[in-house]
Each structure stands twice: as structure tokens, then as C-alpha cells.
Simulated assay, not measured.
Amino acid sequence: MSASTSELRLIVIQMQISYHKGTNLTLAADLIKQAVSSPDAMVADIVNGQRTSRSDLFSNTLIVLPEFFNSPYDFGKIAENAEHIPGPTTDAIGKIADLFGIYVIAGSIPEVDGKLIYNTCVVFDPNGKIVAKHRKMHMFDADLPGGRYCESDVFASGSSFTTFQAGEWKVGLGVCHDVRFPEMATAYALQGCHMIVYPSAFEMVTGKAHWKLALQARALDNQIYVVGAAPARHDASAYPVWGHSALIGPWADVIAEADEKESILRQVLDLDAVRNARQQIPLAKQRRTDCYRNINQ
């Protein structure tokens, strides 16, 4: 049976990242295959690379990978692992998207463009074509009990909002630290987005204190689905991450949440949840832009 056109099959992959790019790409492909596996007879043909037609099984399916899914979050390795887009990583993920006929938000990768490096999220449509590219806008510069971080020493900042369409769904993109800025999320909501996806890799201190809270706050503010896709924790890593990928509903409810281990979250979402939340409390109509339009002055 075909999925409702207002439904979206969301799959969030929380994978453990190694120092070997080839291993990470193989793992990402394997977990995507695992995530969409089914007794449906067509799956065997797809996994063997023999797809001859598209199936309703994968209709309007969106896979989300974590921030820096192809390489470690290690400032000493960023330049070494940076790629052009398109490049080896995007070529590999594009083939997977085309093979299964699914949308893929490929977390983020270090992107080299001239002399600059960006933390970039790339989106593929069910034909494996790149349909969106978001460069992280806000750099994580922080002095915390667990260490000092200064992303602005390594990365250039993006300066554009990025959206794409998946069927009836309009989706906005942010990367990690972008989630802390409510103005960005509100801009997406005002542009008509039904969901914002944040591939992220919060570290242990801010992860425990702020991760889920920030995701819920952006959902609450904007009556929107919010997805946080994180890597799995590796305690021996130089940068242990919090993990805990999560899906938040437009009522700010936690629909699904992982722990710190490698895992896959699956959920069928419906646009009616967004419509209902906005009808019950019509925040968009109640905004007093006449009072705070000059907030930055």
C-alpha cells in the first residue's frame, strides 16, 4: 500500500565514527541497507544492486546521518579529510540514495572550497542527485570544563539558510551549534518548513546539559518537527560525543531517542501533527513583529 502523501518515513542513523574514511563510508552504507531492510521480496534485488523499479516500501523515505559521519571530529585531521563537493563521499552516498530511491541527508563532512574549509551538510534526492548543500553558519567557540573549542580557527562560516522539498515536506537544515540560535529556526518556520534537521556532535558537557533541551526548544518555539542526528559515543576518542540522537514533535514531545550506542531510529511522521499544533495555538498569527522587528538595533 502506498504511503499517504503527507507521511514521511524518517530514519536516523547513529553510527560510530572511526579514523578511517573508507571504513566510515562502508559502515554508513551498511547501516542504510540495514535500516531499510524488509521481508519484501524486492529488497534482495536492491541490496544486490539489481533494482529494476521503485517500491512503495521506500516511498518518501528520509535517511539522516550524523555530523562528520565520514571522518573524526579532530582538528588535526580536518584539512587531511576535507573534500570537494561533489567528491568521493558525496559520490558514494549519492549512489546509495539512487539505489534505494530515498532521500538522504548526509550528516556533514569537511568541505574544501579554494583555501577555505566548511562544515557542510549535503542532501540527495531519490535519484541520487544533490538537491541542497548547507554550510554550518555558527561556529562552536567555547571554553568549557572539559576543554576549549574554537571551530572558527579551522572552519569558515556559511551564510545562507538552506531548505529542500521531500514530497509535501519542506525541510530546513542546520548543523550542530546552529541549533542554539532560535532566530534561524524561526526563519525556517516562517519560510514554511515542517521540519528542521540538525546533524550534530555535541560533546559530553553540553550534550548532557543542553542537547535535548535545545531540540525541544526549537520545536516548541516553531511548532515544527526537529531532528538531532548524532554519532555514537566512542569513549576512547579524543572527542567523546554525547550521542542520544532524537526526534522531537511539533508539541515539543520526545517521539524517539537513542542512548549513546550505535543505533537506528525509525518513525513515520505525518504533516497533520504540525497543522494541528499550529491550529491549536496559532503562534504565527500572534507574533508581535511591530514590537520586536528591530531587535538587533
Rank of each mutant, 00 (worst) to 15 (best):
T120G: 05
E151T: 04
S59L: 07
N70G: 07
L269E: 06
M139E: 11
C121W: 00
G192K: 04
H134K: 09
N60F: 12
D40G: 04
I13Q: 02
H138L: 15
G228F: 00
R218D: 02
D272I: 09
W242R: 06
F58T: 12
S152K: 10
D40R: 09
D178T: 04
Q297F: 03
I63L: 08
C176D: 04
A166S: 14
D221N: 13
V122Y: 01
L220W: 11
M42V: 05
S53F: 11
L27A: 09
H138M: 14
S159L: 09
I17L: 12
A258L: 11
A29Q: 02
V241N: 06
N48C: 00
I255H: 01
L25Q: 01
K77P: 00
N60Q: 15
H244E: 10
S108A: 09
V227R: 03
S37D: 15
V179R: 11
F58E: 01
G167V: 04
V241Y: 03
G49T: 07
L213K: 10
V112K: 14
V131Q: 01
G147T: 05
D91L: 08
S53L: 05
L62T: 11
A28E: 09
F202I: 00
I63T: 05
Y292I: 11
D270G: 13
G243S: 14
P240K: 03
D221F: 11
S6D: 13
L265M: 06
E83G: 08
V47R: 04
N127H: 12
E111L: 07
R135T: 10
R266K: 13
G107I: 10
Y292P: 04
S245N: 06
A230R: 00
A3R: 15
W251G: 04
A230L: 04
D74S: 10
A44M: 02
S4L: 15
F75D: 14
Q267M: 02
V64L: 03
T186C: 13
R180D: 01
G114R: 10
A209M: 06
A3H: 11
A258G: 12
P145Q: 12
K21Y: 04
S55V: 03
L215D: 03
A92S: 07
P39I: 13
I17H: 12
T90F: 00
S2A: 13
P66G: 10
Y292V: 13
V36H: 08
D98I: 09
A29L: 00
V205R: 00
S59N: 09
H84W: 01
V175Q: 06
Q297H: 10
I224Y: 02
C150D: 04
P145N: 08
L283I: 15
S157G: 07
Y239F: 14
M204C: 01
K77L: 15
D143H: 15
V268F: 01
Y149C: 01
A217C: 07
V254C: 13
I32V: 14
W242T: 11
C291L: 15
L144E: 01
V274R: 07
G128D: 07
W211S: 00
S18E: 07
W251I: 00
A214F: 02
S6A: 14
K115P: 03
S2L: 09
D141Q: 14
P231Y: 02
Q16N: 08
R51E: 00
